[in-house]
Design a protein around this nucleic acid. Sequence first.
DNA 1: TAGATTGTTAATCGATTAACAATC
DNA 2: TAGATTGTTAATCGATTAACAATC
Lengths: 217, 217
Amino acid sequence: MKSDKISEAVVRRLPVYLRYLSELSQREVTTVSSQELGLRLDLNPAQIRKDLAYFGDFGRKGIGYDVSYLIEKIRHILKIDQQINVALVGAGNLGHALSNYNAYLKDNMKIVAVFDAYGPKIGTQINSLKVQPMNELSESVQKDNIRIGIITVPDTEAQNVADQLVESGIEAILNFAPTILKTPPHIRIHHADFTTDLLSLAYYLENGKDDEEDDDK
Amino acid sequence: MKSDKISEAVVRRLPVYLRYLSELSQREVTTVSSQELGLRLDLNPAQIRKDLAYFGDFGRKGIGYDVSYLIEKIRHILKIDQQINVALVGAGNLGHALSNYNAYLKDNMKIVAVFDAYGPKIGTQINSLKVQPMNELSESVQKDNIRIGIITVPDTEAQNVADQLVESGIEAILNFAPTILKTPPHIRIHHADFTTDLLSLAYYLENGKDDEEDDDK
DNA sequence: TAGATTGTTAATCGATTAACAATC
DNA sequence: TAGATTGTTAATCGATTAACAATC
C-alpha cells in the first residue's frame, strides 16, 4: 500500500511488534506469520498485516515475515535506527527510576541529561549523569542534540516545564504528570499517566458486598 | 441514557474528568459546562456530555454540571468511593517510585503490601511497608482484602508474577512490564508500558538530516 | 423572555475484521 | 501440485461529532 496518513493506533502497535520480534530473534526464530504474531500479542492477524502493509511489502506470501528483516524495517520506520537523545526533567523518585531503566538503550533511546528546579538536587549524581539546573536546559538541548523530553515533575510544575522544553527546541514530550499540557501543534505529546490507568481499573472490579444502590453490571 | 455496555474509551476518560473537577473544586468553582471542560481537556464537549450521560443525568440544562456533585458521582462510578487496596510486586526502582507516589491516596487507592522474589530485598523497608516474600502473597491478599496488583518486575518475570496474582485471587492488574500477559478472562489488565509510548514518540520526530532514503512525510 | 447548556438522536468518521485473489 | 500466508478490498463495527429539541 505505502503512504496515506498513518493512524496513531497503528504507530503505537509498532513497538509492540518490535519487542516480540526481538524476542523471536533472540530465540533464533527466523520467520513468523501474522497468525503467530496475533496469537501471542492478542491482535487480529489481518490487522497486523494491514499495519505492516502501510509501510511496505515486508512479508512473503505463503511464507510469512522474515524476523530480522522486519525488525530492521520497523526500527527504521520508528526512526530508532539512529540514536535519539532524551532529556529528563524532574529528578524525583520516578525520574530516578526511569533514568535507571536501560530498556530504551537497546532501542537507541538514551537519556543524556537530567534537570531539576530544586536547588539541593542540582549537582547530585543520577546514574552517571549530573543533575543540572533548568537554566542550562536550552544549551544542553542544542549541544547534545536532544530531541525528546520526559517530564517527571509534580503536576503543578508540568506545564511550566513543558513550556521551557518547547522553548529549548525539543520536538516531542513524554509526560508523566497527570495534566493535559498545552503546547504548539508541532510538538508531539504522549501521556504516560498511570494514575489514569489505575483509577480506570477500579471501574472493572466486582461490586463490593457493601455496595447498596444499583449494580450496573 | 443509563446502561448499555460502556466502552473502555469512556471509562478511561472518567479519571481525567475527575482530576480536573477536583482542581476546580479546590479553586471553589461550583459549576462547569461541558464546553469549559472540553476546552481545558482537549475534548469535544458533545463527547463529554455523552460520556457522562451513560451513567445518569448529572447536569442541568442551561446551567452545566455541579462540580461537587459530579465528583461524587464519578467517584462512585469508578468505585473509588470506598478504599481499594493494592499490592505491588517488584521492589525495584520503579516499584519504589510508585509506592512513594501518594497520588492515588486521595483517590482511595492504597498500596498496602509490597512483594519481591529477590532474597536480599525481603524485609527491607519501603515507605513504611516491609517487603514480603512471594510465598506470603496469597495470605496477604486474603487478609488485607487486596483487589489490584501492580507488576513492576522485569519482563522475564512478569507472566509468572501475574499467574501468582491471579492464583491469589486478585481481580485486576496494572502491568508495567513490557509484555502481553496471558490471564483468564475475568481478570482485568491495564498496560502502563511507557517504553511503547516513548518509542512511538520517535516516529513523529522530523526526519534527521542524515536520513537518505525515502521521507514518508 | 432571551441565553445557555444539557441529553440524545442522527450523521460522520475511522478503525477493525472478514474474505479472497495472488503467489510463494 | 497442494498448503500456507500475504496484501488488499469490501463489510462491519464502534467511536466521535454535529445538530437540535427540551428546559433551566
